[in-house]
Lab assay of single mutants.
Amino acid sequence: MASDGVVVEIGKVTGSVGTTVEIPVYFRGVPSKGIANCDFVFRYDPNVLEIIGIDPGDIIVDPNPTKSFDTAIYPDRKIIVFLFAEDSGTGAYAITKDGVFAKIRATVKSSAPGYITFDEVGGFADNDLVEQKVSFIDGGVNVGNATPTKGATPTNTATPTK
């Protein structure tokens, strides 16, 4: 695992066909100046998982989280898009600690492993708008004895992609 920078880890949970599971997305290594904004994309298989919603985690402190935390689910493109932009203008609602960034709610549709993997990152910046190093650890849903650990090695991303 990367020793510096922010680590975004997609949790690994267990479920069975027809059940709804909650998959946490963790941030670790949050910089001392916090995270003022970030955007990134995960990939998944809508034939295996139906993403039914995404909720902000406990490290989102904006009293009205829909102003700073936004997501979009595109089953036709097989992606989930995340956007966080601190909304106070003063840094008061920045992410300042490690913990759960988001909770992905999904219904298991198939007995195949439900991988959720890193696809791309736009950027991560602290309260001074300084770009942060970030790496990703894939996860998803274990169905029966299947284990979604494909790509469990962190993917280092030093520069934003478009």
Results as ranks from 00 to 15, higher is better:
2 A>G: 04
3 S>E: 10
3 S>Q: 14
4 D>L: 05
5 G>P: 05
6 V>F: 15
6 V>G: 07
6 V>C: 02
7 V>C: 09
9 E>T: 07
10 I>Y: 04
11 G>F: 05
12 K>T: 12
13 V>D: 05
13 V>L: 04
13 V>W: 04
13 V>H: 03
15 G>V: 08
15 G>T: 07
15 G>D: 14
16 S>W: 01
16 S>A: 12
17 V>C: 05
17 V>N: 15
18 G>S: 08
18 G>L: 08
18 G>D: 08
19 T>A: 10
19 T>N: 14
19 T>H: 12
19 T>D: 08
19 T>Q: 04
20 T>P: 12
21 V>T: 09
21 V>H: 05
22 E>D: 07
22 E>T: 08
22 E>W: 15
22 E>P: 12
23 I>C: 11
23 I>S: 08
23 I>M: 12
24 P>N: 10
25 V>W: 06
25 V>T: 06
25 V>K: 02
25 V>I: 09
26 Y>I: 02
26 Y>M: 15
27 F>V: 05
30 V>M: 02
31 P>H: 03
31 P>E: 04
32 S>I: 11
34 G>H: 04
35 I>R: 00
35 I>G: 02
36 A>I: 14
36 A>R: 00
36 A>M: 01
38 C>N: 14
38 C>D: 07
40 F>M: 03
40 F>K: 02
41 V>R: 00
44 Y>T: 06
46 P>E: 04
47 N>S: 07
48 V>Q: 10
48 V>W: 15
48 V>F: 04
49 L>Q: 15
49 L>I: 04
51 I>D: 10
51 I>P: 04
53 G>A: 07
53 G>S: 06
54 I>N: 05
57 G>W: 13
57 G>H: 04
60 I>P: 11
61 V>T: 08
61 V>L: 13
62 D>K: 14
64 N>K: 13
67 K>W: 15
68 S>L: 09
68 S>A: 14
70 D>R: 01
73 I>S: 04
73 I>M: 02
74 Y>C: 00
76 D>H: 02
76 D>Q: 04
76 D>W: 02
76 D>R: 00
77 R>C: 01
77 R>S: 04
77 R>Y: 15
78 K>H: 06
78 K>I: 01
80 I>N: 09
80 I>P: 00
81 V>M: 01
83 L>T: 00
84 F>K: 01
85 A>Q: 01
85 A>H: 06
85 A>M: 09
87 D>F: 14
88 S>A: 06
89 G>Q: 01
90 T>G: 15
91 G>I: 06
91 G>A: 14
92 A>E: 09
92 A>V: 07
96 T>R: 12
97 K>G: 14
99 G>C: 06
99 G>K: 12
100 V>E: 12
100 V>P: 06
100 V>Y: 04
100 V>L: 05
102 A>F: 07
102 A>H: 04
103 K>T: 08
104 I>V: 08
104 I>S: 04
104 I>E: 01
104 I>P: 06
105 R>N: 13
106 A>D: 01
107 T>C: 05
107 T>Q: 09
108 V>S: 12
109 K>S: 08
109 K>A: 09
110 S>E: 08
110 S>H: 12
110 S>T: 11
111 S>N: 13
112 A>Y: 04
112 A>W: 02
112 A>M: 02
113 P>V: 07
113 P>M: 02
113 P>R: 14
115 Y>A: 12
115 Y>H: 07
116 I>T: 10
118 F>I: 02
118 F>L: 06
120 E>G: 03
120 E>W: 01
124 F>C: 02
126 D>V: 01
128 D>L: 04
128 D>K: 04
130 V>T: 07
131 E>H: 02
131 E>T: 05
132 Q>W: 02
133 K>F: 08
133 K>M: 02
134 V>P: 12
135 S>R: 10
135 S>V: 11
136 F>S: 11
137 I>F: 13
139 G>V: 03
140 G>Q: 14
141 V>R: 12
141 V>H: 13
143 V>M: 08
144 G>S: 12
144 G>W: 08
144 G>D: 08
145 N>E: 10
145 N>D: 09
145 N>A: 12
145 N>R: 11
146 A>M: 13
146 A>H: 08
146 A>D: 11
148 P>A: 06
150 K>H: 07
150 K>W: 15
150 K>I: 08
152 A>S: 10
153 T>S: 11
153 T>I: 08
157 T>F: 10
157 T>V: 09
158 A>I: 10
159 T>L: 11
161 T>Q: 12
161 T>L: 08
